[in-house]
Computed example of a mutant assay.
Amino acid sequence: MNDTYDKVAIVTGADSGIGKATAVALAEQGFEVGITYHRDEDGAEETARLVRATGRAPAVRQHDLTDPVRAAAVVDELADELGGLGVLVNNAGTGSHEPLLEMGYDRWRSVLAVDLDGPFLCAQRAARRMVASGRGGRVVNITSVHEEYPKMGSGPYCAAKGGLRMLSRVLALELAEHGITVNTVAPGEIATPMTGQEDMPPQTGSRPGNPIPRPGDAREVAAVVAFLAGPAASYVTGATVFVDGGMTMMGPQGASALGSSDWRSL
């Protein structure tokens, strides 16, 4: 198993939810952790406090992916401060809730900048450092079940997540010879601020349409990310791992159970 890469990880959007849980999980595995945030500085500092509690010394940076070229420079800043880079987790993201026929181009571009351009530029910076080190590494991109399945009102989000899946696969091909793996993790509904649940404990039975009838917990996603970031996953690359409680298996089964056309309305 390839475990020669630097025990340094950068997790973007680590001020809450999946990013926060992932930063802590990686720290528990012995990684020094770089934390980025957009607006929630207090949330980022709370993540840093939890990382410190594991005995690691985190570094924190503000990171605005609406300007992805400038934001990507944070990868090098954090790597320099932490003394290397072995793992990048592209977690930061945004969404939309608007029909495509009503959407302006600026809104379309802002979602693509955060959800696709930013991960590309951050991965490029990280991979260049990993290649130069000669020690390999890991890139894990957080997508969504919507990398594969569409959702009304989320056109740019779905396009970006689908694009990130294919970007990850191309990177997996191009970087394999350097000992760098690239994979995506596709969460379903997770109880986080992004889904309006403010990190609440998932309530069993609250999602009867899912085989596992509840939202996921951010730590359940983080555990998968931590596996893909670790040496045990050295032969896994170009893969997507769905962490969705079985949601994506419910296509025809779920559609047949719908009794109205309410799904057509945002």
Score class of each variant (00 low, 15 high):
residue 5 Y to M: 01
residue 6 D to E: 01
residue 6 D to M: 04
residue 7 K to P: 05
residue 7 K to A: 09
residue 7 K to D: 00
residue 7 K to Q: 12
residue 7 K to Y: 04
residue 8 V to Y: 03
residue 8 V to E: 02
residue 8 V to F: 03
residue 8 V to S: 02
residue 9 A to Y: 02
residue 9 A to M: 03
residue 9 A to L: 03
residue 10 I to K: 10
residue 10 I to G: 10
residue 11 V to N: 00
residue 11 V to E: 03
residue 11 V to K: 03
residue 11 V to S: 00
residue 11 V to W: 03
residue 11 V to H: 08
residue 11 V to Y: 07
residue 12 T to W: 04
residue 12 T to C: 00
residue 12 T to E: 00
residue 13 G to K: 10
residue 13 G to S: 11
residue 13 G to V: 13
residue 13 G to Y: 14
residue 14 A to C: 09
residue 14 A to V: 03
residue 14 A to R: 00
residue 15 D to W: 01
residue 16 S to G: 10
residue 16 S to Y: 10
residue 16 S to E: 13
residue 17 G to Q: 00
residue 18 I to T: 07
residue 19 G to W: 15
residue 19 G to Y: 15
residue 19 G to A: 13
residue 20 K to C: 08
residue 20 K to N: 15
residue 20 K to H: 15
residue 21 A to C: 05
residue 21 A to V: 04
residue 21 A to G: 11
residue 21 A to P: 08
residue 22 T to V: 00
residue 22 T to D: 03
residue 22 T to N: 06
residue 23 A to D: 04
residue 23 A to E: 10
residue 23 A to Y: 08
residue 23 A to N: 11
residue 24 V to D: 06
residue 24 V to P: 01
residue 24 V to H: 06
residue 24 V to T: 05
residue 25 A to D: 07
residue 25 A to H: 09
residue 25 A to S: 09
residue 25 A to C: 08
residue 26 L to Y: 07
residue 26 L to G: 02
residue 26 L to Q: 04
residue 26 L to K: 05
residue 26 L to D: 06
residue 27 A to Q: 09
residue 27 A to V: 10
residue 27 A to N: 14
residue 27 A to E: 14
residue 28 E to G: 13
residue 28 E to T: 13
residue 29 Q to P: 12
residue 29 Q to H: 12
residue 29 Q to W: 12
residue 29 Q to G: 13
residue 29 Q to I: 11
residue 29 Q to S: 15
residue 30 G to S: 11
residue 30 G to W: 11
residue 30 G to P: 10
residue 30 G to K: 10
residue 31 F to E: 07
residue 31 F to D: 02
residue 32 E to M: 12
residue 32 E to W: 06
residue 33 V to R: 13
residue 33 V to H: 14
residue 33 V to N: 14
residue 34 G to W: 01
residue 34 G to I: 00
residue 34 G to Y: 01
residue 34 G to P: 02
residue 34 G to C: 04
residue 35 I to T: 01
residue 35 I to P: 08
residue 36 T to Y: 13
residue 36 T to N: 12
residue 36 T to Q: 14
residue 37 Y to D: 07
residue 37 Y to I: 02
residue 37 Y to C: 07
residue 37 Y to Q: 08
residue 38 H to G: 09
